[in-house]
Structures are given as C-alpha cells and as structure tokens.
Amino acid sequence: MEHLIDIVLLGLLMITGFAIVRMKSLLAVAMLTSIYSLLSASLFVVLDAVDVALTEAAIGAGISTILMLATVALTRDEEKAPRHTPLLPLAVVTVTGAALIYGTLDMPHYGDPAAPVHQHAASAYLHDTPGEIGVPNVVTSVLASYRGYDTLGEVTVIFTAGAGVLALLGYRTRRRNIQGPGIRKLVVLRVIAKLFFPLILLFALYVLFHGDYGPGGGFQAGVIFATGFILYALAFGLGNAQRVIHHPLLRIMAAVGVLIYAAVGIEGILLGGKFLEYGVLADDPVTGQHLGIMLIELGVGITVAAVMLIIYYGFVSRQD
C-alpha cells in the first residue's frame, strides 16, 4: 500500500515537472511550483520524514510561492519562446540523465536496511538519544545537539540571505496605506484573517516548543510565524503590517536570533564545557540538554521569522 502511494505521488511529481516545462504563463508556472512542493511534502510523509514534510509544506508551498508570485508581478508574466532550438540542451540533459541512471544501478535498493547509509552514525544517534539527550524526536536531537555547529552555520546562511536581499532590494516604508478599490471589498477575507492571525502565531509557538516531542522546531516555527504576518499584510495592506511590525525591529531580531544561538555556545565555554556543549548548562546533563535545545531553537525561530519577513517586505514594497 505504501509503495502504491509512493509510486503515484512520484508519477504526479513527474507530470507536474513536465507541465512546468511546457507552460508559457509564468503565473501558472508559479502555482504549479507550489503544487510540486506540496506533492513532495506529501511524499516526505510517506517516506517517514515528518519534520522535513512540515518544513517543505511551509516553505516550498507557502513562502516560495508568494515570492515567485511577487516576482512575476514585477516582471512580465508571459515567457518568450527561446531563440535557439532546444536540441543541444535536450542532448545534454539526456546524456547526463542516462549517466546518472547508470550510476543508480550500483545503489542499494530502496528501503534496504543493510544499505551503507544506515550503518555509520545514524544507529548511534538512534541508540544514544534517549539516554544522552532525553528527547523523543531524534531529528531534533541531531539537529540541535549532535550537529549543533552545522545548524549554527545554516542559521548564519539564512541571516546572510536576509542581508543580501536587503542590500539588493532595500525597503520602503509606506506612510499611507495604498489600497486599490478591490481590497476594500474583501470583507470576508479580512474577518477570517483577523480570526486566524492569532491562531497561526499560537500554532507557531506550539511547533517551536513541541519540537522535542513531535515534528517541529525552530525552522518550521519561524516560517509559520512569518506566514501569519504575511497573511495579515495580504488582507490589510503592507502599510498596516509595517505598522504592526517595524522594519528596523525585524533587522534587529534577525541578528538577535543568531546571537542567542552563539551566546548559548559561549555560555557552555564559560561554564567549563566546550562550545555548544549543553550538558554543563544545568546540574543534570539531561536537563542541560533540554535547556540548551530550547534556547537555540528559540534563536533559530527568531532569525528565520525575521529574515522571511525582511525578504517579503523587500519584494512587496517594490510594487508601486
């Protein structure tokens, strides 16, 4: 049964991919990309990667689509036909694909428990997590504790991307709230947005602090938090959203998140441990791990939410 779902979802992904190649309207392509992400998120659930599925659904199907739509609105929404015949690219793609498929023939079969991937570090993580970290979600324990350096690097990458978009697009504050005649008619949308805005923020906090026990964590929570404000901006206009959460505040928060993460690491050194060693943060090593994971997830969440909103403001405030 599981294989059947897997096969069908992958087939649908392939069809969506081909449709994206053929479509000329970029608006339709952006929507198809969203469908593509949602399908891959469903596939990740089938493949047991619930944390990844949550992230892909929030980021791929949510925020990426909004950014692509914003870009399409700023550029032309029809694609011109290419000037060259597509024969050479087609040949390159076919040869590369054939070489890669030849390469897979040596790979272990899908789902094989004896595959080399599963032999090295993963079994140790699965075995040691309950005793050393004391959280049920192994993905969180590996992300936040065993591979904490790695995640610090990723958060810095996010921060850098936010700075890059800020440098490229800048931001403009809207003093007046420019509204077309259309947006005033969206009464239903506004009522529902007002009803759901606090619930989305609450859900983000749940995902953030429940990440030890179920799927979730700082990355997903940050994105969901930002989505709440994006919904607000869509329904009530960008000017009102900027009044709720100021741009200078966002820039400070983006840095504060990374600093919280690094400060937890340095606190470990000051208390006599190593960088990002959470065990020394409390008397009991397991409690220390809990505390450390909670704090760094908070830092990750703050940075991700702030950067997503900086990017969103950057794109949308270009539209005049």
Partner: peptide
C-alpha cells in the same frame, strides 16, 4: 528510518528558500 538525512535536508530546504 534514518534521521541523519532528515536533518541535512531540513536545513537544506530553508537554505534553498534563501
């Protein structure tokens, strides 16, 4: 299932958005 690729891809998705 193996948690290590999940961790790598989770962060990769966020970086892909960046």
């Amino acid at each position: 299932s193996n948690p290590l690729p999940h961790v790598l891809i989770l962060t990769a998705i966020v970086v892909s958005l960046a």
